[in-house]
């Protein structure tokens, strides 16, 4: 599991984990993120059960276990949070922030110790160490209860499955050329995103944010210029049509 610091300002850090060369075949490659501030840290979409050990090992190179105070699951998918039953044993005092809609489903992954903190439909702001994090509604993108995470200080938006591309593990970290990148995203977005209306609502919302990096859960990250290009591309893309 590779770890890359994508933002650092004093004790405020964003670390991306992914491009796991050792992961078994047939498993979709995922990006996990950790935000640190002061003596707290949050794991964003900590990943599937297959990833638990390499993930925890990678994380403990940066922080002690008791400083991982928060977990976030943007939605209920197995590649997002099927590792929960094991985190539950490793981080018994942690809190899991996730859409309220999915609570009774996510508990099926096994959660006896970790505390579930339901995020209301309209979103929520929490503090982590010395910073504030916003849970931005992204319902129906693709899950019926879905949030992204915005850090206004680092100007990073963790965008879950939006902006996802299926790539080789050795692909570069950042999108360099949108013209060659969009073909890698088109089918995924058309098949997985069910609602044009929800898509437009999200674009309206995200255009109001000041974003330096958009960090999806699969594939490359977008820098400022490419974020604008992505939003324009996504706006024009009809979704929910791939089975026609």
């Amino acid at each position: 599991m590779q770890a890359t610091v994508i933002y650092e300002d004093g004790d405020h850090r964003w670390i991306m984990f992914g491009r796991d060369a050792n992961k078994s075949g047939g498993i979709i490659d995922t990006n996990q993120y950790m935000i640190q501030s002061g003596d707290q840290a949050i794991l964003l979409d900590p990943g599937g059960i297959e990833l638990f050990a390499p993930m925890l090992s990678a994380v403990l190179k940066f922080v002690p276990a008791d400083k991982i105070t928060h977990l976030f699951a943007s939605h209920q998918d197995p590649d997002i949070i099927s590792s929960l039953g094991l985190w539950d044993q490793a981080l018994p005092k942690a809190k899991l922030y996730s859409p309220w809609l999915w609570e009774s489903f996510i508990r099926h992954f096994g959660m006896e110790r970790i505390q579930f903190c339901p995020i209301p439909d309209e979103g929520q702001t929490i503090s982590l160490g010395r910073i504030q994090l916003q849970f931005v509604p992204a319902h129906y993108l693709h899950s019926s209860g879905n949030f992204h995470v915005y850090d206004p200080k680092a100007k990073i938006l963790m965008s879950g499955d939006v902006g996802a591309a299926l790539e080789e593990p050795d692909a570069p970290l950042y999108v360099d050329n949108m013209a060659t990148h969009t073909p890698k995203m088109r089918k995924f977005h058309q098949r997985w995103m069910p609602s044009n209306e929800a898509k437009q609502d999200w674009i309206r919302r995200v255009r109001q944010l000041d974003i330096d990096i958009m960090a999806p859960q699969h594939g490359r990250l977008f820098q400022q210029k490419q974020v604008g290009e992505f939003l324009n591309w996504f706006e024009e893309l009809p979704v929910g049509i791939a089975v026609r």
């Binding site: 050990a53 090992s57 190179k61 940066f62 002690p64 044993q89 490793a90």
Partner: peptide
């Protein structure tokens, strides 16, 4: 399952490995 993952982690000699002791 969890124990075997923990045992694997213990062998990694991680900088913050000790912080997992209680769990």
């Amino acid at each position: 399952t969890a124990a075997s993952k923990f045992e694997w982690l213990e062998r990694q000699q991680l900088p913050w490995g000790e912080s997992l002791r209680e769990s």
